[in-house]
Structures are given as structure tokens and as C-alpha cells.
């Protein structure tokens, strides 16, 4: 009897640790509580700044750079593509409510009809296809520049990703499982770095908290090198010495779904500068 009780308790504890049976709401609340303990002085709204929120001088340097962003010319290119008419005379704005303003925060969403997660990039390609145009490659700079502008139309919108229904929950759970699974020769999970060691230094790199990470994509790394969120997944996969997956793979889309849900309630800003 005693043994059985210990077993039940142990299972419960384990469940609490990895959040195995918790709902998305509980997962998110647990993480918020956890990060509050590690970062008692950082405001929740500032989690969108990642490591910048942990370093006042780096943050003020960042603010200066963002006043005159070095990627302004690149962003103009994205705007031009967004505004250029397709061969049929229509524009991207025709594919989204309100011409594409304040829409990006609901992505990714789970689409019951196609039984898959739909990212904002998927919606861009669906728009191109519906208008008889060619898809753009996922993760490449053309898609990056276009979405940098398209997402900027949603600046300030609060992220509002929904996980409703059994199938949506299953996709969320797959993304979550990916996040917490160790892989690669170095045996890290995403959580090893961004949950367990958030705020610590890996050599010269301080590690950002996971909540807030999905709010500001794409990024211009070093000012001009454009990186989409899923490109960043690839870079982090390489940190663990494993072969990255493909942009727009089902695994990455599920991961993006989970990760973006975790940033719910935080304001979007695109694009941003990062070192």
C-alpha cells in the first residue's frame, strides 16, 4: 500500500515537472510562475526582449539602434512585394481581413479541414496560390523580407493563439514533446537551455526565457541578415549537433504552434534587430 502511494506520488510529481497531463493554460501558468522566480525584477511584458531584458545597457543600445534600424532598406523591399499587384491585379491585402492589419497574432492556428497547423507563412503561400502565383520557399530571405513587412502591420497586436479541440491539442502536445525531448550528440532539449538554464551564460551567450520568444519574427541578425523563426530553430538544432529539420516540416510547425501559444498575451513587433 505504502509503495503504491509512493508510486502515485512520484508519478504526480513527474507529471508536475514535465507538465505531462497539464492543459495548455496550466503549462503556460506554470512556466510564468517559474520564470518569475528566476527573474523577479523583469516585467512580464519585457520577456519579448529575451536576453535584452536581462541587461540594461544592451537594452538601451538596442533602443538606440531600433530608432534608426539598419534594415530599413530591406523592409522597404518587403513592403514593395506586399503592395505589388499579382498578374490578376489583386494584392496580398485581399487575402486577409482588414487588408492584413492586426491579423498575424492568431497564427499559427489549427485548421480542422486540412488537419494541420497553419503558420502565417502558410497563409502567405496560400494567398499566392489562390491568385495563380508561385509559392515562396519557406525559411528563405524572400519569405523573410515579405513577412517582415506583412507582420509589421500587426505591431502591437497581442498574440492570441488558440488550442481548441482534441486535434488541436494533439498538435500542441507534439510541439511540446519536441520542445522537451533531448536530442543531438550534445543531448540537449530546447528546454535544457531556455527553461532549465534561462538567464545563465553559455560561454558568452546569455540564454533567453522561452516565453516571449515567438513575438518578434523575423529578426535581422547583426542588423541585415534576415532570420525567420524556423531558421532560428535550425540554428538551435545545430547547437546540439543534430541535423536540423526542414522549414515548414510538420514537426517545426507544431513546435511553432506550441512556442507561440506560450507567448500569448504579449505584443507583437516585427521585425527586430538582434546582435
Amino acid at each position: 500500500m505504502k509503495r503504491k502511494l509512493t508510486f502515485i506520488l512520484a508519478t504526480l510529481l513527474l507529471g508536475a515537472c514535465i507538465g505531462a497531463k497539464a492543459s495548455p493554460v496550466e503549462d503556460r501558468n506554470d512556466l510564468i510562475t517559474y520564470y518569475k522566480q528566476i527573474f523577479p525584477d523583469i516585467k512580464f511584458e519585457d520577456y519579448i526582449y529575451g536576453t535584452l531584458s536581462m541587461n540594461t545597457s544592451a537594452k538601451s543600445q538596442y533602443d538606440d539602434i531600433m530608432a534608426f534600424p539598419p534594415y530599413a532598406i530591406d523592409l522597404d523591399k518587403g513592403q514593395k512585394v506586399w503592395e505589388s499587384p499579382f498578374k490578376n491585379g489583386k494584392q496580398f491585402s485581399s487575402c486577409f481581413p482588414d487588408g492584413g492589419k492586426n491579423v498575424a497574432g492568431i497564427y499559427p492556428y489549427y485548421d480542422k479541414a486540412t488537419a494541420r497547423v497553419v503558420t502565417f507563412e502558410n497563409a502567405i503561400n496560400a494567398c499566392l496560390r489562390a491568385n495563380g502565383e508561385q509559392d515562396l520557399s519557406y525559411g528563405e530571405s524572400e519569405m523573410g523580407l515579405l513577412t517582415a513587412y506583412a507582420r509589421s502591420l500587426s505591431d502591437g497586436m497581442k498574440i492570441n493563439v488558440r488550442v481548441e479541440g482534441v486535434d488541436a491539442l494533439a498538435a500542441y502536445e507534439k510541439g511540446k514533446a519536441y520542445y522537451y525531448t533531448r536530442r543531438g550528440q550534445l543531448n540537449f532539449s530546447c528546454a535544457s537551455c531556455h527553461v532549465n538554464n534561462a538567464g545563465k551564460f553559455l560561454r558568452g551567450d546569455q540564454l533567453s526565457m522561452m516565453i516571449g520568444q515567438a513575438s518578434h519574427w523575423p529578426e535581422f541578425l547583426a542588423g541585415t541578415d534576415i532570420v525567420t523563426l524556423q531558421k532560428r530553430f535550425m540554428q538551435c538544432n545545430r547547437n546540439t549537433r543534430e541535423i536540423p529539420l526542414k522549414a515548414n516540416s510538420e514537426e517545426y510547425n507544431d513546435l511553432e504552434y506550441f512556442l507561440t501559444y506560450m507567448s500569448n498575451g504579449l505584443p507583437m513587433q516585427s521585425p527586430v534587430y538582434r546582435k
Binding site: Q185, L186, N187, F188, S192, C193, N196, N197
Partner: peptide, 13 residues
Amino acid sequence: PNSSMPPFGRNKI
């Protein structure tokens, strides 16, 4: 079991 340290021998690093 929760160590973040890579298993240098087991994974032949």
C-alpha cells in the same frame, strides 16, 4: 538524470 551537461563518453563526443 536532469543534468544539462553533455555525456561526453556515452555520446562519443
